[in-house]
């Protein structure tokens, strides 16, 4: 007797899942298809769903409009800041997970609160400092400023990871006379690799997506891809296909990484607010 209701239930649920999926994915479908349209097709009203696709927009943005170099800038900045955050953050995470000391909670809290500071608060003072020191429009300025969010992410996720490693291992090593640094490098860090990988992916995503610092600190030579995409909107004749081609180029690597780390993305975005 319950079977028909169950089946109807399953159908209803299936339709609901489909709607949720469409809601999330449709804008990406539209972005990619628009990127394959010529300007003439893109400006048809009402918009067309079937057309002959062309890669002309990609060729043009990559080789004529300098989106290629911007993507390379984005890559340099995101990879460097992630590497730096892992280099600085993993020892700190190890100390927070393994050592006992005064002020540990406060320090921990300070690392985490960086999640709440708006970049617009830091952008102008840093802009002035960068102008004085000649760091404006360099990769270094962006790499350093992105530490404000990449370092807390690495510290937070890796502290959790180090805590989950059994103490017996390092105790045995200590009895053998190994230094803390040795234990960290040779025993704990290799075991914490999953956490390092997840936090690297997250910090790459967040750096790659960043716009405000990039827009204010790197107007020309070090311009990153999101800042580049913004400048397309500044003319009168808005080149839809080109904008969407640039958007697709920016978004695709991030989406791949997001799917790889899908289980941890929410953890990374909540930064300790949810266990």
């Amino acid at each position: 007797m319950a079977a028909p209701t169950n089946r109807r239930h399953a159908w209803g649920e299936g339709v609901l899942l489909l709607l949720i999926g469409l809601f999330c994915v449709f804008p990406f479908y539209w972005m990619v298809t628009t990127s394959l349209k010529t300007q003439v097709v893109a400006l048809e009203s009402p918009p067309v769903w079937w057309f002959t696709p062309t890669l002309a927009n990609y060729r043009e943005v990559l080789f004529v409009d300098k989106v290629g170099p911007a993507l390379i800038n984005s890559l340099i900045v995101a990879v460097s800041t992630t590497a730096l955050a892992v280099g600085l953050g993993t020892p700190a995470a190890y100390a927070l997970a393994r050592f006992e000391f005064r002020g540990k909670r406060d320090l921990w809290f300070w690392f985490i609160t960086n999640r709440f500071v708006s970049p617009v608060v830091l952008a102008f003072p840093v802009f002035l400092i960068a102008r004085e020191t000649g760091l404006r429009d360099t990769h270094i300025a962006l790499i350093l400023m992105y530490l404000t969010f990449t370092l807390p992410i690495v510290i937070w996720i890796c502290t959790d990871q180090f805590r989950s490693i059994p103490h017996e291992l390092d105790e045995a090593a200590m009895l053998e006379g190994a230094s803390q640094w040795r234990i960290f490098r040779s025993i704990c860090l290799p075991l914490a690799m999953p956490g390092v990988a997840v936090s690297s992916i997250l910090s790459f995503i967040f750096s790659w997506n960043e716009l405000l610092f990039a827009y204010i600190l790197a107007p020309k030579a070090a311009k990153t891809a999101p800042a580049m995409a913004v400048t397309f909107m500044e003319g009168y004749d808005v080149p839809y296909g080109k904008i969407m081609a640039t958007s697709t180029l920016i978004v695709v690597p991030v989406l791949i990484f997001a799917l790889l780390a899908s289980k941890h993305l929410v953890r990374g975005l909540t930064m300790g607010a949810v266990k």
């Binding site: 990406f28 999101p226 995409a229 991030v254 997001a258 799917l259």
Partner: peptide, 25 residues
């Protein structure tokens, strides 16, 4: 599982691109 994967996409999308997409759509 498939739905859960699709849910991950919007929040990972470059926020600037979200604004551009809005313009176009």
């Amino acid at each position: 599982t498939l739905t859960r994967l699709s849910l991950v996409l919007p929040m990972a999308t470059t926020y600037a691109v979200v604004g551009l997409l809005a313009q176009v759509m």
